[in-house]
């Protein structure tokens, strides 16, 4: 039964290919098949300064979710960021604050979440009020120069 073992090996080969394709899709490019185990929270930022979708949301540096959508709020003219927080992280208080941070000097932007003190926790659809925009280098330099001049 030589042809049988060839069939099995070819089958295994194709399965390997499928597994690789799934790995590339899911864990490398972050495609998800339905998003059941997350809940959405929102936050407004004055300036997102280079934050992208799929950027991580962290608490104390540990990832607890991802940025799922970024859009402009047409009324308030600020950025509205939708975040998907992992379902098992269900203990973030409603007065938590979020901040756009940069990893390292050249790294990408991510959202740092600092947990507040309230008993009530964030649930699906909650809005985080306390936000701090990204630091934009040009603005920072501008402010620094302005301060120097006014001294």
């Amino acid at each position: 039964m030589r042809s049988r073992s060839i069939e099995i090996l070819v089958g295994l080969f194709l399965v390997c290919g499928l597994v690789a394709a799934l790995a590339l899709a899911m864990s490398v490019s972050g495609l998800t098949l339905g998003s059941k185990d997350t809940y959405k929270v929102y936050a407004h930022f004055e300036n997102i300064g280079g934050l992208t979708e799929k950027a991580e949301v962290t608490v104390a540096g540990v990832q607890v979710g991802t940025v799922s959508k970024i859009e402009l709020d047409p009324q308030m003219l600020v950025a509205k960021v939708e975040m998907k927080i992992f379902a098992d992280v269900d203990y973030l208080s409603v007065d938590s604050s979020v901040q756009i941070l940069t990893s390292g000097l050249l790294g990408g932007k991510y959202i740092g979440l600092s947990v507040g003190a309230e008993e009530e926790v964030l649930i699906e659809g909650s809005m985080i009020e306390d936000t701090q925009s990204a630091l934009v280098l040009e603005e920072l330099i501008g402010k620094f120069l302005f301060d120097k001049v006014s001294e």
């Binding site: 864990s27 490019s29 972050g30 799929k54 950027a55 991580e56 962290t58 540990v62 790294g107």
Partner: peptide, 20 residues
Amino acid sequence: VYSGSFWSVMQASVDFYDDV
């Protein structure tokens, strides 16, 4: 390297259609 940011930075930058 912290594994959470290793994978999430990767996922943020790799697009399934454009790259894969």
